[in-house]
C-alpha cells in the first residue's frame, strides 16, 4: 500500500499552450465588476465568456486560456462549459448572427417562409456563414417571442412580426 506503481512520465514533446488573450483596462474592469457579484469566482464563467466572445469574435484558444487563468480553472473546465450552451461559439462566426426561431408558434406563423427568404437572399443555409464573414445563419429554439411570430434575433436584437420585406429591410440596414 502506498507504493507508487506507475511513474507518470512528462510528455517528450512540448505541450502547446496558447498565450492568453489580453484585454484593455476597460474590459478588465468590466470583468472585475462581474467577478464582484459572486462569492465564488467560477460563477462568473458565463458572463465572462460573453465578454471574451464579444471581444474576440468567438471563444478562441487564447480567449479560453485567458478565462482559465482569470478564473483559476483548467482549460478543460472552460471547454466543458463552453460546449454545453448554445449561445457560446467555439468556432468563428459572422459579424451578424441571424437566429431564426423555428419552434412551434413561429413554425405555424410562417417561419418557413422567412427562413427560405433569408437563405435565398444571403446564399447560405442554416449553419453556414457568408464568404465575406458578415452573416451567419442558424435555426434556433424558442426565443420567447411567440405572440409576435415569426421572428429572428440578430446578435442580441429582437426583430418580430417579420415578413420577407421586413427581413430585407433589417438585413440591408446592417453594415
Amino acid at each position: 500500500m502506498g507504493e507508487v506503481l506507475v511513474k507518470i512520465q512528462p510528455p517528450d514533446h512540448p505541450v502547446h499552450m496558447p498565450e492568453a488573450a489580453k484585454f484593455s483596462p476597460q474590459v478588465e474592469s468590466e470583468i472585475d465588476r462581474h467577478l464582484a457579484k459572486y462569492p465564488i469566482m467560477r460563477s462568473a464563467i458565463l458572463p465572462l465568456m460573453f465578454i471574451v466572445q464579444r471581444e474576440r469574435g468567438y471563444l478562441d484558444p487564447p480567449g479560453v486560456q485567458y478565462l482559465a487563468n482569470r478564473l483559476q480553472l483548467r482549460v478543460t473546465d472552460i471547454w466543458e462549459v463552453a460546449t454545453f450552451y448554445s449561445m457560446l461559439q467555439t468556432k468563428p462566426t459572422g459579424r451578424y448572427h441571424i437566429q431564426i426561431c423555428k419552434t412551434l408558434s413561429c413554425k405555424i406563423m410562417g417561419e418557413g417562409k422567412i427562413t427560405e427568404h433569408v437563405c435565398n437572399k444571403l446564399g447560405i443555409r442554416p449553419g453556414e456563414t457568408t464568404a465575406d464573414g458578415k452573416f451567419s445563419l442558424s435555426l434556433v429554439e424558442c426565443l420567447g417571442s411567440c405572440g409576435t411570430a415569426p421572428m429572428f434575433q440578430v446578435n442580441f436584437d429582437y426583430h418580430e412580426n417579420l415578413t420577407p420585406e421586413k427581413a430585407d429591410q433589417i438585413l440591408e440596414s446592417l453594415e
Binding site: 467560477r42 462568473a44 458565463l46 460573453f50 449561445m87
Partner: peptide
C-alpha cells in the same frame, strides 16, 4: 446573471448548477 442558451436551466437545480459556473 446571464444564462447562455439552455432550456434545461429553467429546471431549478440545473439553474443552480449553471449559476455556480457548471
Amino acid at each position: 446573471h446571464t444564462g447562455a442558451g439552455a432550456y434545461i436551466c429553467g429546471e431549478e437545480t440545473a439553474l443552480l448548477s449553471s449559476l455556480e459556473g457548471f
